[in-house]
Design a protein around this nucleic acid. Structure first.
Lengths: 370, 370
DNA sequence: CTGAAAGCGCTTACAG
DNA sequence: CTGAAAGCGCTTACAG
C-alpha cells in the first residue's frame, strides 16, 4: 500500500527549506543529498575550515577569532543546521564515544532492563550504545565482538555465553577495555560485575527449609556456567547447614535446546521420582513462567514453596508466597558502565602499568513472602 | 574488590602474543596500544598500502597482484589478526552499514522483542544496530535522532513519542531514510509499519459482546497517539455494531505520569461508577499486569471478560479466558527493516525522484480463549 | 587575527 | 605487476 501523491504534496515549505539547507554533490556513481560540511561553510564564507572548526568547537575566543567572523560562522552554521560528522571526528581522536553491549538475549526482560539502565548511564557520560543480542550463539557472539571492535567502539560490556574464552583472551591480549557482567570467567583476570549467586541461593533455600519445606526441587540449566554452579552450591549449602541431604531426584537440569519441551520433561520426572516434592527453587527466573503454565495445563495447584533468583512482573500475583532474590539491575548497570569508562580513560591516559582489574559482586535483595 | 597479581600472572603466552600483534604508537598525549593498520602491513612488507588494500579486499587477482605478494600479505595480515577500521571505510564510502533504532522503552517486553527481531533481520543484511530508548522523553528522543545522524547511521527506525513532529519533518526535508513503526503521523508522508489497531480492537470487543458482556471497560492512555485513538474507535465501533452504547463511566484514561498510581485511581473510579462492570479491554498490554496486581491486592476475583492488544507471558495463566490480539512482532520488524534498507539503497542509487513512501498495516492474530 | 598543511585509516582512479 | 596521490570530514600544531 502506498501513500498517494496527494499526501506528499502538502510540504512545500519543507521542500523549500530543503533547498536552502542541502547541497547536491556528486559521489561514487550517484547524486545524493548530503549534510553540509565544514568545507561548505568555509567556502561560502570565504574563511578557512580551520576558522570554522575553531568557532564551532567554541575555541573561537581562545584562538583569537574576531567577533565578527565568529558571528558570521555561527549564524550560517545554524542556518544550515550544521551537524559535525562524528565519524570523521572519531577517526581523528581515535575514540568513538560509543560502547558495545552484548547480551545473550535482548528479548529477555532481565537483559532488556539491564540494557535500559546501561543506556541511560552511558548517555549520562556522552556515550552511545551499540546493542547486540547473541541469542546464546557463540559464532554470533564472536562475530559481534569483532564487528564492534572494527566499528571502533571504545569498549565492550558483555554477558558472555561462556562457550569459549577465545575472544575474551584476545581482548585481554589487546588490552582492550571490556567488562563482563552476569557471567564471568573465574580463571581469567577480567573486569566483571556479578551477583552473590551462592549466598543468595543459599539464603532463599534456607528460608524454605526454615518454613518447613524438605523436598525442595532445584531447576537449573547451562551447568557449565560458573554462575549456575554457584547457585547449585548455594542450594546444597542450605541443605548441609540444616543437617539435611536433598533427594537426588529433586535435581532438575533443563538442557540447552528447546526449553519449553525440556522443562516439561524435567518436571515430569521430578513429580514421578519425588511425588511429595513440596517446593521449587528456580535457579533462573526464565523457568518460573513456564512452570506456572505447566501447572495450569495439568491442573496442578500452586501449593508449593517457591523461590527464584530474579522475578518477572506477575510471579507474586500468581504465587503470593513467591520468595525471590531481586537482581540489583540498577547497580549492575551502573557499576559495569563505571568500570568500563574508567578503563577507557585509563587506556588513553599515560599509565604504563595495567589498571588493576576490578571484580564487583553485588548482593541481591531478598524478598521473603512466604 | 580487586583481583590480585597472582591471578594476572598466569598469562605469559597471552603477553607474548600481545608483543607480536600490537604496536605502540604515540598519540595525542599518550601511548596506547592500537590495532595494526594497512600502513603497518605495507611498511613491514615493503609494498604500498594500495597493494595491501587490494589483496585484503579480495581484488588481488583482478588488479593483477602477483600470487607471491598476495600470499605474503595474506599471511602477515592473518598473523597480526588485522581488522580494518570500519570508521575509516565508512568515511570513504559515506555509508556506515549501521542503522539506528529508537523505542520509547527498551525495558518493555514488546519493544525489546521487536528490537530482537530487528537486530537479527539487520544482521542478515550486514547492518549493525544502535539502539536508543527515549523513555518517552521528547528531548531525549530529539537528541537521539541528532546523535544517530551525526554518527552517520544510514537510516533510522523509530516508534516516536509523537510529542512533536519537528525531527520527523526535518528528516523528511533532508530526504533522510527512516521508517516509523508502532506509531505514526497520519498527516505526514513517511514510511510506516503499524498494526490494524481499529479492526483488531473492534474484533476483540465484539467478541466480548458476543459472549454476553455488556459493561466492558476500556483502559487506555496517551490519547494523543493516533494509535490509541484508533483502538478506542474500534471499541466504539463494536458497541455500535451491536446496537449498544457503552456507559461513559467505563472509559478509563491513565494519564501520563506515574502509571502505577494512576491506574489504581482509574480502576477505583470505574468500579465506583459502574459497580457491575463485567469485562475489561486493555488498549495496551502494559495495564493488564498492573490490573492483576490491583485485583490481587484488593481480593477482587478475576471473573471478568478480558481482552487486550498484545499480551505478556503469564496473562493466560492468570486469566485463562484472556482474549488477545497478538502483535505481529516478526512481521513488523521484518517489514520495517525491509523498507528502511530499500530506502537506503534508493538514496544512494541514481534515482532522482523520491521513492514513494510505504505504509504497511499488519493484522494482529486474534486468540479467543473465552 | 587567520590559513595552509598534515594526519586519522581507509579506497580507488590514474599513471607507469 | 605496483605505487603515488587525492579524497572522505574532521582537528590542530605551526607559521605568518
Amino acid at each position: 500500500m502506498e501513500i498517494g501523491a496527494a499526501a506528499q504534496s502538502g510540504w512545500p515549505d519543507a521542500a523549500r527549506r530543503w533547498c536552502r539547507t542541502q547541497r547536491i554533490i556528486s559521489h561514487p556513481s550517484s547524486r545524493i543529498a548530503m549534510r553540509s560540511t565544514l568545507k561548505d561553510i568555509a567556502q561560502a564564507l570565504n574563511v578557512s575550515t580551520t576558522t570554522v572548526s575553531w568557532v564551532l568547537s567554541g575555541k573561537g575566543e581562545q584562538k583569537g577569532i574576531s567577533k565578527a567572523t565568529e558571528e558570521r560562522v555561527m549564524k550560517y552554521a545554524k542556518e544550515l543546521n550544521y551537524q559535525p560528522n562524528l565519524l570523521a571526528r572519531s577517526l581523528h581522536y581515535g575514540t568513538s564515544h560509543t560502547i558495545g553491549l552484548i547480551v545473550p538475549s535482548i528479548g529477555d526482560l532481565f537483559y532488556s532492563s539491564l540494557a535500559r539502565v546501561i543506556e541511560q548511564e552511558a548517555e549520562k557520560f556522552g556515550y552511545a550504545l551499540m546493542i547486540c543480542s547473541s541469542e546464546s550463539d557463540l559464532g554470533k557472539e564472536n562475530r559481534m565482538v569483532d564487528a564492534l571492535r572494527a566499528k571502533q567502539v571504545d569498549g565492550i560490556l558483555m554477558a558472555p555465553t561462556k562457550l569459549s574464552d577465545e575472544k575474551i583472551v584476545s581482548m585481554l591480549d589487546d588490552k582492550y577495555p571490556f567488562v563482563l557482567f552476569d557471567r564471568y570467567y573465574p580463571e581469567l583476570p577480567t573486569n566483571y560485575v556479578i551477583i552473590d549467586n551462592e549466598n543468595s541461593s543459599q539464603q532463599l533455600v534456607s528460608h524454605l527449609i526454615r518454613r518447613g519445606y524438605r523436598k525442595i526441587a532445584i531447576i537449573t540449566t547451562n551447568t557449565y556456567l560458573y554462575t549456575m554452579d554457584l547457585r547449585y552450591r548455594g542450594y546444597c549449602n542450605a541443605y548441609a547447614a540444616a543437617g539435611l541431604t536433598p533427594d537426588p531426584g529433586l535435581y532438575g537440569v533443563v538442557e540447552y535446546g528447546d526449553h519449553e519441551v525440556e522443562l516439561e520433561r524435567v518436571l515430569d520426572r521430578i513429580f514421578e521420582r519425588v511425588p511429595d516434592v513440596d517446593a521449587f527453587f528456580f535457579a533462573t527466573h526464565i523457568f518460573a513462567s513456564r512452570f506456572f503454565a505447566y501447572c495450569a495445563d495439568r491442573g496442578i495447584g500452586l501449593d508449593f514453596g517457591f523461590a527464584a533468583l530474579h522475578e518477572e512482573p506477575l510471579y507474586s500475583v500468581l504465587a503470593p508466597n513467591f520468595n525471590v532474590a531481586t537482581m540489583p539491575i540498577e547497580g549492575m548497570g551502573h557499576e559495569a558502565v563505571r568500570i568500563l569508562l574508567q578503563n577507557i580513560k585509563n587506556r588513553s591516559g599515560k599509565k604504563k602499568a595495567d589498571a588493576p582489574k576490578q571484580g564487583v559482586i553485588l548482593s541481591c535483595s531478598l524478598k521473603y513472602r512466604d
